[in-house]
Simulated assay, not measured.
Amino acid sequence: MQVTHAELVTSAVSPNQYPQDEIIEIALAGRSNVGKSSFINKMINRKGLARTSGQPGKTQTLNFYNINHQFRFVDVPGYGYARVAKTQRASWGKMIEKYLSQRENLQLVFLLMDFRHPPTELDIAMKEFVEELDIPYGIILTKSDKIKKSQWTRHLSLFKKDLDLPSVDALFPFSAESGEGSDLIWEIISDMIEA
Score class of each variant (00 low, 15 high):
Phe115Trp: 07
Phe115His: 02
Arg116Tyr: 05
Arg116Trp: 00
His117Phe: 07
His117Val: 11
Pro118Asp: 05
Pro118Leu: 05
Pro118Cys: 04
Pro118Val: 01
Pro119Ser: 08
Pro119Trp: 06
Thr120Phe: 04
Thr120Cys: 02
Thr120Glu: 07
Thr120Val: 03
Glu121Met: 08
Glu121Asn: 12
Glu121His: 09
Leu122Lys: 09
Asp123Tyr: 12
Asp123Pro: 07
Asp123His: 09
Ile124Val: 08
Ile124Arg: 14
Ile124Gln: 15
Ile124Ser: 12
Ala125Cys: 02
Met126Trp: 04
Met126Glu: 11
Met126Val: 10
Met126Leu: 12
Met126Gln: 14
Lys127Thr: 01
Lys127Arg: 08
Lys127Val: 02
Lys127Ala: 15
Lys127Cys: 12
Glu128Arg: 12
Glu128Gly: 06
Phe129Gly: 01
Val130Arg: 08
Val130Gly: 06
Val130Leu: 07
Val130Pro: 09
Glu131Leu: 03
Leu133Pro: 08
Leu133Asn: 05
Asp134Trp: 06
Asp134Gln: 14
Asp134Glu: 13
Ile135Met: 08
Ile135Tyr: 00
Ile135Arg: 07
Ile135Val: 10
Pro136Tyr: 13
Pro136Thr: 03
Pro136Ile: 04
Pro136Met: 09
Tyr137Lys: 10
Tyr137Pro: 01
Tyr137Met: 15
Tyr137Val: 04
Tyr137Gln: 13
Tyr137Asn: 07
Gly138Gln: 13
Gly138Ile: 03
Ile139Asn: 04
Ile140Gly: 02
Leu141Met: 13
Leu141Val: 13
Leu141His: 04
Thr142Trp: 02
Thr142Ser: 11
Ser144Ala: 15
Ser144Thr: 05
Ser144Trp: 06
Asp145Ile: 06
Asp145Gln: 04
Asp145Leu: 02
Lys146Tyr: 12
Lys146Gly: 04
Lys146Cys: 03
Ile147Ser: 12
Lys148Pro: 13
Lys148Phe: 11
Lys148Gln: 15
Lys149Leu: 14
Lys149His: 14
Ser150Gly: 12
